[in-house]
Structures are given as C-alpha cells and as structure tokens.
Amino acid sequence: MEAEKIKSREHKIVVAVDESEESMHALSWCLGNLSSQNANNTLVLLYVKPQPVHSTFDAAAYMFSSDVVGSIEKYGTEMVNSVMQRAEAVYRNFQTNAHIVRVVGKGDPKNVICNTVEKFKADTLVMGSHGYGFFKRYIL
C-alpha cells in the first residue's frame, strides 16, 4: 500500500539546463531514468541567465551605449530561447507524459538553482557535470 502511494504522488524534478552538451545529456538521463518510473511527474527546466554587465557594474554601464546594452539583453533572450528549444527537442525524443514547466532565473546560478528547488519543493535536482573529470568534481 505504501509503495502505491509513493508511485501515485507527484514527483517534481528540476533539471538545470544551459548551453552545454553535458546539461542536455543530464536531461536525457533524467528522462530515460527518473521520469519513466512515475507517470505523475513535473519536470522543471531551469535556465539561469548570468547577471547583465550593467547591473553588476553600474558605473561601467554608463560607458556602454543603450544600443550595446540592448544588444546584450537581446542576445540573452535569444540564448534562453535556444537552450529551451534544445531541451524541448530532447524531451520530445522520449515517451513521457511529464508536465513541463519552464523557468528562467537571473543571478548567481547556485542561489537560483537552490531557490528554485525550494520553491517547487522538488524531489530531485539533475545537473550536468560540465565535463569535469572525477578529481575536479571531487574538489568542487
């Protein structure tokens, strides 16, 4: 009876995605392993935009024209769209009925990721390794 309750309850999985192949590999792994265990899953695709230059260094922002700042912001939006499209293409390759939620955060990735996990009360966080080997992952 307890096993049936666990299988029937909603599982929330946050997958941090970015431009790297490792993050798409982590998403594939998640879809192939975690989401197939339960049909009642919410998959949160999280992309964290880095702080724009003008908000990090307000004094330096005055050196940039509004055109440059606008171009940087446009590039950031295009990057979000590109990453989310790639993630959705990976998702479509799997036979899963997980409910997809797209979240775009801004700021320090570790804080945004932790806050998103807390906000959604996620059961699982999946992230790529950025190609780090065993030793570097151990140190980090």
Rank of each mutant, 00 (worst) to 15 (best):
M127Q: 08
S28I: 05
N111H: 15
S36I: 04
F135P: 01
V101C: 03
N38D: 06
T116M: 03
V90S: 06
W29R: 06
K12N: 06
K49P: 01
M127P: 10
S71R: 05
S28H: 03
G32E: 04
V17S: 02
N41Q: 06
N33T: 14
A89R: 14
F57E: 04
G133P: 05
N33W: 12
V48P: 05
F57Y: 15
K49L: 09
K74I: 11
A87W: 04
Q37I: 05
N97M: 08
I6G: 08
E78P: 00
G128N: 14
K106P: 00
Y75P: 01
S65V: 08
D123C: 06
V15C: 15
G107H: 08
S129K: 04
T116N: 07
V126N: 06
P52Q: 03
T96Q: 09
S55R: 08
E118A: 12
V44L: 03
P52V: 07
H54Q: 04
N115E: 15
K7N: 10
F135E: 09
Y47P: 00
F64M: 09
L27H: 05
K7R: 10
W29P: 06
L43A: 01
G76A: 06
N81Y: 00
G131K: 10
K119W: 03
V14Y: 12
R9D: 12
V83A: 01
I139R: 12
N115Q: 15
K106M: 07
D108Y: 08
M127F: 12
M127C: 13
K49M: 11
V68P: 11
V53T: 08
K136W: 05
Y91S: 01
N97F: 05
L34G: 01
E10W: 07
E10M: 11
E4F: 08
Q51H: 10
R9H: 12
L27E: 07
G107L: 11
F134D: 03
D67S: 04
V104I: 11
M127L: 15
K49C: 06
V101L: 07
L34E: 07
A122E: 09
A61L: 05
S129N: 14
D123Y: 06
S20I: 06
N111D: 15
G128C: 00
R86V: 13
Y138P: 01
V69Q: 12
D108S: 14
N97P: 00
G107S: 03
K121F: 07
K121V: 10
G133N: 12
K74N: 10
K5H: 09
A59F: 13
L34S: 11
I6Y: 14
N38K: 07
A16P: 01
K5V: 11
R92C: 03
L125R: 00
H25V: 13
D108P: 14
M1R: 12
H130A: 15
E22T: 13
V80C: 09
T56I: 11
R92V: 05
E4N: 08
